Simulated scan of single mutants.
Amino acid sequence: MKKLLVSLVLVKKITSTVPRSNFADRDLEKLAQLILELGGLINPIILRRNGMDTYEIVDGDFEYYAAVKAREINPMKGETIGAFILEPENEGVLLEQVQALRKSAKTENLVENPETLFLEENTSSQPADSIKNPVSLVEVPKSCENETPQSSSSLEQRLTNLEAQFENQINELKAEYAREKQVLALSIQEVENRLLQQVSLLVEAGLANRINELKSELPTEKQVLVERIPEVKKVTSESMSALEALNNLDQSALFANFKDAGLKLPVIKTIIEQRGVRQFTSFANVVERVDKLGDKTMIKIIDKWQKYS
């Protein structure tokens, strides 16, 4: 059988078929103040589920209405109430215990108040099972000077119930703290990931800008080549007949002569394509516009230019 534990239930989720007017407002007010002062009831009520998250009173109507009064006084402190909830596996035993306690409470009441015998006899004819919400197990406090002190066993039981209630509250707080801690850790991790991404993008953008600046500051490789190769400079000042042959010679003849000079097919095609786009203005211009055309190859072509005419 599942161990019986005290559960914290929202007061607003509980209903009672016993009218509130059955209890004196003065007594409800007194117990409500005690509930707020202590932080809860020392005697949990008994509930039965009648919905997904709603309950009805089986025993403890007086305590319930006192808790309602406490919630009216201070909604923050009086929001929940300790309760035993009937489950299929423990309902029978729990109801038997309620009946036994009720019988004991009636006997004590008869001993202390013989004048109630007539009222008990009139109600004893009704079977116990027909009472949906039996009388509360806790006596309504009496405003008299001579109060009978509680027995040590009853006090111990109430202290045990109170400890169980506090333990449940502490466990709920621990679980809530763990959930909030996990959410906070995930949020921090997400912020760190975003910062790392932003830093990475900024670094890459900075490097790209600097590379572009350096490229714009440095002359191209072909410009340096043209400026530093004396042979090319010398050729550019020579007669333009070779350059004219390069610009105007028939493609088949030009192709044959270039191949004889040792040029590769892609370079020859590029020269012919560039010539078709725009005529070359100098041999230096040829070197600049044709990829993979080196200075030595250009000099070799110039040496054989007389074959192109």
Rank of each mutant, 00 (worst) to 15 (best):
K3E: 13
L4Q: 15
V6F: 02
L8A: 13
L28T: 01
E29S: 06
L38C: 03
G40H: 01
R48C: 02
N50E: 15
V58L: 08
F62H: 05
A67Y: 00
A70V: 03
R71W: 02
R71D: 04
I73P: 00
M76S: 11
K77D: 10
F84N: 01
I85H: 05
E87K: 13
E87C: 06
E87F: 03
E87H: 08
P88M: 04
V93P: 02
L101N: 15
K106P: 00
L110F: 01
L110D: 05
P114D: 05
L117M: 08
L117E: 06
L117G: 03
L119K: 12
E121H: 10
T123W: 09
A128Q: 13
K132D: 06
V138R: 15
V138P: 02
P141V: 08
P141T: 05
C144R: 15
E147V: 13
P149Y: 08
S151V: 04
S152L: 13
R158G: 00
T160G: 11
A164N: 15
N168Y: 07
L173Y: 06
Y177D: 06
A178P: 08
V183K: 14
L186N: 14
S187H: 14
V191M: 14
V199T: 04
L201I: 07
G206W: 09
N209Q: 11
N209E: 10
L214R: 09
L218A: 13
E221T: 05
V226I: 14
V226Y: 02
I229M: 10
P230H: 09
E231N: 09
T236W: 04
S241I: 09
N247C: 03
D250C: 02
A253G: 01
V267F: 10
I271K: 09
R275G: 10
R275C: 08
V286K: 12
V286N: 13
R289D: 12
V290G: 11
V290P: 09
K296M: 09
T297M: 12
I299Y: 11
K300W: 03
I302M: 14
Q306L: 03
